[in-house]
Nucleic acid binder design. Structure first.
Lengths: 116, 116
DNA sequence: CGTATCTATTGACAAACATCACTTCAACTG
DNA sequence: CAGTTGAAGTGATGTTTGTCAATAGATACG
């Protein structure tokens, strides 16, 4: 965590590069990729609320309980759940006619750690 | 934080609602909206890396130092910075020809708190 | 077996997005 | 002032996204 030195820049003399590029380790790339995937999945108010509800109930919640919470069709909700599952944030389990969704807590850890 | 009771459901008798909806307070709505806006802005690997670099340098970083970090054109980078600014995550300051960007730390607090 | 119920998938479509080449704008330099 | 340089804006383009209506599975019930 180094502080950037604010040397007042001068217009470059036609040939030299403008600035020293701020290099960053290549390790970060996969890291950033994974975290942005999670963030993207949370980047919709409905999906974020879904995760919130699932977390608050700390158990497995039936899809049929989730549908009436939003002003969207059942198929749209199913689509959002699929995205959350694809991102690894939730998983589901079938019991007869019903599908129960739950949060995979470890999925949010990396992003959470980076943010704080 | 209540545990969901897993009463085995029965097929509804044609008229009754399927399930008790899991209600959530209306306060959450604006909350979710704000946080998903932040998450969406972080939902791109380039933007997330930008925020990472800006945070690591804990000061103001010149755009010209950011450009060579990515395999994208200058105008695309400018576009990403604009999105981050629109989300309130970063802000910029002009000094002569150069533009310096920095993270507004409070912008990430709400999402960070929710995630942990 | 036939039908109703819950969930997932498909197809369609408008809106948003990421990207680039090109242009504009502001400001420094000679 | 004229030319150059850093950054932002524009227009175009192909991709992704959120949404719904309709359909398809799967399973329970009578």
């Amino acid at each position: 965590m180094s502080i950037l030195e604010l040397t007042p820049k001068t217009k470059r003399p036609a040939g030299e590069p403008c600035c020293e590029p701020v290099v960053y380790p290549d390790v970060e790339r996969a890291h950033a990729e994974r975290m942005s995937t999670i963030a993207k999945a949370l980047g919709d108010p409905i999906r974020l609320t879904l995760v919130d509800v699932l977390r608050k109930h700390a158990g497995k919640v039936c899809v049929c309980e989730l549908v009436p919470l939003f002003d969207i069709s059942q198929s749209t909700l199913s689509h959002h759940l699929k995205k959350l599952r694809a991102a690894g944030i939730v998983d589901s389990e079938r019991q007869g006619l019903w599908a129960y969704y739950y949060v995979r807590p470890e999925a949010l850890k990396e992003l959470s750690a980076w943010l704080s």
